[in-house]
Simulated assay, not measured.
Amino acid sequence: METMLRSIAMSGYFDTARRLGLNPIDLVQRLGIDPAALANPDERVPAAACCRLLELTAEMASCPSFALRMAETRQKFGTGVINVLLAHKRTLRDALLAAAEFRHLLNEALAVYIEDVGETVTIREELVVDPGTPTRQAIELAVGVLARHSSALLGNHWKPRSVHFTHCGPADQTFHRRFFACPLEFGSDFNGFVCAASELDYPNPAADPELVRYAESLAKPLNASNASNADSIALEVRKAIYLLLPLEQGTVEYAARHLRLSVRTLQRRLASADTSFSELVEEVRGELAVRYMSNARYPIGRVAALLGYNQQGSFTNWFNARFGMTPRDWRNRQGK
């Protein structure tokens, strides 16, 4: 089943492309996307095609900050039931948890995870699309939109300590520094933000519990209908593994907790989709191995840890069995 997203996630694409002197209709059609569907915020379009569209547009415009320029157009939460719900939640933490709960009505490819460590919080975002799909621009769009929405909710109280990306940074980071107004870390272990826990729990001055309850009453039936689709469970578990594996939490127990399911229910639903948790872990581990090993800044021992191996030797054995060569040999071949 192809992973989809609502066209509202690509809001700002047409205007941003035109400002940079491009013909967005031509580019959209070149990627096999219906321009009318992309312009309709309620339509659903293929996530992988949108990722490739963003990369192509950034390349054609010679603008590595293209996705952030799209995000800059998001002055506030948009219209629609889900955006009303998020905009009026009590805190940013509540809004992020609601975004995760209603993920089926937003962007099926996007996963969000909040990691609390004392007084510090890490907000992780991950895009799960077909292996080999370029996601640099799409990730920057997702993180950029999160920054804009967080600022809309908290105003001057949104002051992240740092923003992180797993990919390498552009040669000129001027736009990135101005957009985020906080330290940038490229080539990181994750995509997202590190901020003070107090920011996530600061009261939203626009919070309206009655409006939230009304929006939830409309959204929950739609969300349940999408979530009950048997084909979606494998994707949801894959997204959970992407988020949890680098945290040494890539177990069925942690995944079930993240998805608010019992272990038995999770396993039963995976079986109905003709897969299993162990099979999905193997798939995700292979995809992440290519991602991390492709970054020469990551020592092999670090890659092993990010993939859930305490011993580098165990990782080497697994890697050799999967890719037919040692991690060092694989990396040497990539460098040629």
Rank of each mutant, 00 (worst) to 15 (best):
G32M: 05
G12P: 01
R302F: 00
P203M: 02
A219Y: 05
A36F: 00
S272R: 14
A305G: 14
N191F: 02
N295H: 09
S11A: 11
E199D: 11
D34N: 14
A100S: 14
Y113T: 05
V281F: 09
E253Y: 13
D94A: 15
L31G: 06
G313Q: 13
R269V: 02
A219V: 07
A111K: 02
G78K: 03
S217K: 04
L5T: 00
L154A: 08
F14D: 15
V281T: 08
H149A: 10
A109I: 04
L96A: 03
P64M: 03
A152H: 05
R322M: 12
L270S: 01
L211I: 10
V128I: 13
T16Q: 08
P46W: 12
R264V: 11
D130R: 15
H167Y: 08
R52P: 04
M1T: 07
R331A: 15
D172L: 01
T91Y: 06
P46S: 07
R260Q: 12
Y254N: 15
D329T: 15
V284C: 08
N320I: 04
S228K: 01
F319D: 05
I33S: 02
S225M: 11
A181Y: 06
I114H: 00
R124Q: 09
G286P: 00
S262L: 04
L280R: 00
R124I: 01
W330E: 06
E248I: 05
A58N: 00
E199I: 10
I233E: 00
F180M: 03
K76G: 11
A87T: 01
D116K: 15
F77V: 08
R6F: 15
E59Q: 12
T79D: 15
S65Y: 07
L266N: 05
